[in-house]
C-alpha cells in the first residue's frame, strides 16, 4: 500500500502532465472564438461572485 504522500505527489504529477499536454488550445482562435471566451469569463465571474456573496450572507445570518 502506497503512503498518502506518494499518492498525492503522483496525482500532482499527473495534473502537471495534463496541464502540459493541453497547454495550447487547438481550436482556431478567430476573433469570434476569442470574443466568446472573453464574454464567458465575464459571465462566470459575475455568477460566481453572486454565489459567493449569497454564501457569505447565508453564513452570517
Amino acid at each position: 500500500m502506497k503512503p498518502f504522500s506518494a499518492v498525492f505527489s503522483s496525482l500532482v504529477n499527473q495534473v502537471r502532465a495534463i496541464n502540459r499536454r493541453y497547454a495550447k488550445p487547438q481550436i482556431e482562435m478567430t476573433w469570434f472564438v476569442k470574443a466568446c471566451l472573453l464574454i464567458l469569463r465575464l459571465y462566470l465571474f459575475v455568477l460566481v461572485s453572486l454565489m459567493i456573496y449569497k454564501f457569505v450572507k447565508t453564513l452570517k445570518s
Binding site: I18, Y22, A23, P25, I27
Partner: peptide, 12 residues
C-alpha cells in the same frame, strides 16, 4: 474541451 480550449477551461 481540454483539447480545443486548453487546460484552464478543461479543468473548469
Amino acid at each position: 474541451i481540454f483539447h480545443g480550449f486548453g487546460a484552464f477551461w478543461g479543468w473548469f
